[in-house]
């Protein structure tokens, strides 16, 4: 058994401790946000946030994650009450197929937690691992800038956005 805290909730996971987090999120916890893209740490579609840092969940075995705070896209809000990042991606229509988008958003979430007003360069740098094949890049960049604005407009520290973080 491995104890994991995902989006603020504790879980006891009955899986091989060497299993990468991605498979546990998708299969044991039925969370859809993190996606399998390459299993090699090259594309970013599996990105989640662990203790505030963007982490490639296809690469990290669950045994390394006990006692750490794991946040997925499901922790940023719901379809009825989307969080500011989700609002921004909906507002800017920042998706085509959408498969890479949760990974993009989690990389952005980690960035905006520590820097609510990132420069264009800082946003691009934060997304350096994340690949998009549809060519939605311009909208993704715009949505992340917009999310920063929404977070500031809410006059809350970015770190308090979302249910967990």
């Amino acid at each position: 058994m491995v104890s994991l805290t995902v989006n603020g909730s504790p879980h006891q996971i009955d899986a091989d401790p060497a299993t990468p987090l991605l498979y546990v999120l998708r299969e044991e916890l039925a969370l859809n946000g993190a996606k399998y893209g390459c299993g090699l740490g090259q594309c970013g579609s599996c990105t989640v946030v662990v203790d505030g840092e963007a982490v490639l969940s296809c690469m990290v075995p669950i045994m390394l994650l006990e006692g750490r705070e794991i946040t997925t896209i499901e922790g940023l809000g719901t379809i009825d009450e989307p969080g500011p990042l989700q609002q921004a991606f909906i507002e800017l229509q920042a998706a085509q197929c959408g498969y890479c988008i949760p990974g993009m958003m989690m990389s952005a979430h980690a960035l905006l937690r520590r820097n609510a007003r990132p420069s264009e360069e800082e946003i691009r740098e934060a997304l350096t691992t994340n690949l998009c094949r549809c060519g939605t890049h311009m909208r993704i960049l715009a949505a992340i800038r917009r999310a920063g604005e929404l977070m500031q407009a809410a006059s809350l520290p970015a770190a308090d956005q979302g249910r967990a973080g």
């Binding site: 969370l31 859809n32 946000g33 997925t72 896209i73 499901e74 940023l76 809000g77 719901t78 379809i79 989307p82 990042l85 989700q86 991606f89 909906i90 229509q93 920042a94 998706a95 959408g98 988008i101 949760p102 958003m105």
Partner: peptide, 9 residues
């Protein structure tokens, strides 16, 4: 389809 895709539906 976008709201579902960005919230993990």
């Amino acid at each position: 389809d976008i709201p579902g895709k960005v919230t993990g539906q």
